[in-house]
Design a protein around this nucleic acid. Sequence first.
RNA 1: GCCCGGGUGGUGGAAUGGUAGACACGAAGGACUUAAAAUCCUUUGGCUUCACGGCUGUGCGGGUUCAAGUCCCGCUCCGGGUACCA
Length: 929
Amino acid sequence: MEYNFRDIESRWQQRWRDDKTYRVRIDPDKPKYYVLDMFPYPSGAGLHVGHPLGYIASDIYARYKRQKGFNVLHPMGYDAYGLPAEQYAIQTGQHPAVTTDENIRRYRQQLDKIGFSFDWDREIRTSDADYYKWTQWAFIRMFDSYYCNTTQQARPIGELIECFERQGNIGLDIAHTEEIEFDAEEWKLWDERRRSEVLMNYRIAYLAETAVNWCEKLGTVLANDEVQDGVSIRGGYPVVQKMMKQWSLRVSAYAQRLLDGLDSLDWSQSIKETQRNWIGRSEGAEMVFYTEGEDPVAINIFTTRADTVYGVTFMVLAPESEYVSLVTTADQKDEVDKYLEQTRKRTERERIADRRVSGVFSGSYAVNPVSHCRIPIYISDYVLAGYGTGAIMAVPAHDSRDYAFARHFSLPIVPLVEGADVSEESFDAKEGTVINSPAGTPAEGQLVLNGLSVSEAIEAAKKYIVASGLGKVKVNYRLRDAIFSRQRYWGEPFPIYYKDGVPCTVDEKDLPVVLPEIDKFLPTDTGEPPLGRAADWTYRGYPLELSTMPGFAGSSAYYLRYEDPQNSDALVSTEANGYWRNVDLYLGGSEHATGHLIYCRFWTKFLFDYGYIKDDEPFAKLINQGMIQGRSNFVYRIKNTNTFVSYSKKESYDTTEIHVDVNLVENDILDTDRFRRWQPEFADAEFIVDADGKYRCGWAVEKMSKSMYNVVNPDDIVERYGADTLRLYEMFLGPVEQSKPWDTKGIDGVHRFLKRLWALVYDAQGNLLLDDRQPTEEELKTLHKTIKKITYDIENFSFNTSVSAFMICVNELSTAKCSKKAIIEPLAVILAPFAPHIAEEIYSLCGNSTTVCDAAFPECDERHLVEATVKYPVSFNGKVRFTLDLPADMSVEEVEKSALAHDETQKWLQGKAVRKVIVVPRKIVNIVM
RNA sequence: GCCCGGGUGGUGGAAUGGUAGACACGAAGGACUUAAAAUCCUUUGGCUUCACGGCUGUGCGGGUUCAAGUCCCGCUCCGGGUACCA
């Protein structure tokens, strides 16, 4: 009987739905296991064949764990808020909720066809009010918190207020935005507005002035990639760098914990490294330089190279630095203003793209506090306001950026490392022996560094700076606070209202603050965000916040909500979280390394600090599935004609390479009739073909995208080959973590495998072949070596090699014509995670009435794998010359004796003496001559 | 620039330091068939030989080892991430 995958798959999918096979409940008698996929943003294009790759891998693991006796939580949902639906709404007036709903329906249809073991009763959508209520709730908790650096945790803001009433902020070590100092008396004198402002300096969710790309004409903030050459890409309106009040999350407070936490995570080395770089911890010193003159300005700088203080030949301030106005002299003011105006117009992106040296002299000089040299102060945009103190001491000999600047402005360059040649470029490496620090003795209070290694010198210099009161040792992080406001409609509203301009939180009992309906999805005429159009956007008579939250808001705690999705009293109950805990296995793309995966860890640590959840890391193990690339096909049109020449002959003509839809091509051979029908311009195309009459296309691996005509849709594959074939083939392509091109042509191999398996169950006439006969030792060996391999492979996420192992197994059973239930049934059980439909069918044909999902995954019985003999390769000086069958339990000495006694040995020795014989038991013999 | 990955047949890819190319695709030849599809069998890294066989071969150059695709050093090319972070 033919392998009718359509019938088998639709029948079992129905059965799973009817029986709620994939529903999970808390079961204290079973160990839990939580497998999660990064939930998708439901785009209008639907799923292409690359999307399910990770879902299939995680599904295999989830099903395997279930068969191993775990209670497996394996949910799915949608990251439903997002820009594309809103852009579409602006263009068409179609409400984003409608678009999103449609897209979700399509996603679900596509997912359902692939046979995943998701518990859909737990589905969540970030745009559901029942869900985003808890996003808003978390925001309120963050607003009501500060971060205590001493205990390294979030604490209620109320404690801080009490503290301020007692002692002000003196002596407190709290994460903050600005350095300010006040005592209890001052605090008590301030009015509510001022106190609110001061508290904002400490809240974990806070409102602050932040630099953004502002487009006046469009009335909105733009992302860096929406701006080019100082104008908006859409419309070409001018964009300026502007300080704007934005909500932010104090992620930076958690920098050290986010860094330390990485050590305990089973994530790939590369993604941990990316996060470490992103967090960017650097240890250095902050030091004060004073300007010359009667009223000296104290300029605080940050450096990781305190050892180079004798090589400082100038200073540089960021254009946005508050020191700028303090040090600019009257005669330089015009120059400086011109420069500031120039840089203000440039976006950060442009500053990065355009590395031309630019800058301006402030007119002032400072004094190096260690060497007491007089050095000029410049202003340049190569120094960033947002990092360190926004001011640097420049050491051109040992910093390439300072070097370029010094060269441009002809400033002196003083090398401090022995042998460093700085005539062409700076010597940035932290190695070598220090020279050129002045003579003197430490006893005279002099910093002496000569003769030390650079790393010793850094330590010595830091010690000196602290001891002599010139500055302090400081750790800086590159990680910045996350800007949390968007002037957009399709996102979570903030649970914030403004009472006489003072931001206050909505009462928790009044959550959720539901996204209001508006007439147009555009900013208001007065330039306010779209929510400004809502009819009654107030709370207790006060105006509500008009921004909405960004994309990462809804994805930062979603994994917790799956544990208890219907709970209306809490994000997740203590009971549910106590059982399900954090995610054991998380699958998703590595592109989220510095976004979602940082924010989610931050959010988790925050909730953990308050004891809402039991783990301070969200994802214990992370696997990044590779990207599935497209494999594009090309045809070659002879220029100025409508004649196309086959790939092999294209060199003889002057041709243009044109993308052709891969669905018109099979094994690189073009279906010329369908090609003519594909687009009107090709209707009368002529072809110069190969000798066999076929038109062969060229090909290339590119990103899978519509414009390259290389998108392959999973529905089409399922329709043609079935879901089990799709699942197996996606795994068979290669290692999950690796990126690889999709080429449908290889799919026949795995489809044939399933047909061969099916042929063991039914013969061509439709007779059931399964029987109850005793299996032979050979058959048992085939089965058990497969069990062993599959178990090992699943646990190591090596699914491509599992598929090969299944093929080998079925090939062997086919040769043996084995249709014995004693073999086929356990084979169906271990195949179930990969190809659940056919596995269910075969398992049921073996006489079972329960689902194969609950069939225990069989253990390998090593007794069946014992070999009586071993085929020893015998090599001479490492080159294998012949093989020798010997008893497996033969001693090393006897193996050696047998090898030396063999006829062939004499031939290969060619009269040379045997110097040594290496015998690796059960592996190899190597004779050294 | 820096940080990660990675270079193995025509293609996707296998290989705890122990017979490189498993398993597939494709290709070539054959069987079955009126024919096609489907299925099955054989061959398939390169060079060489009538053949047995031999030589060579995992990006390049060195090294360690009885033995290297695998470990070490230096280079090179490709892919990804990140970037005036002082």
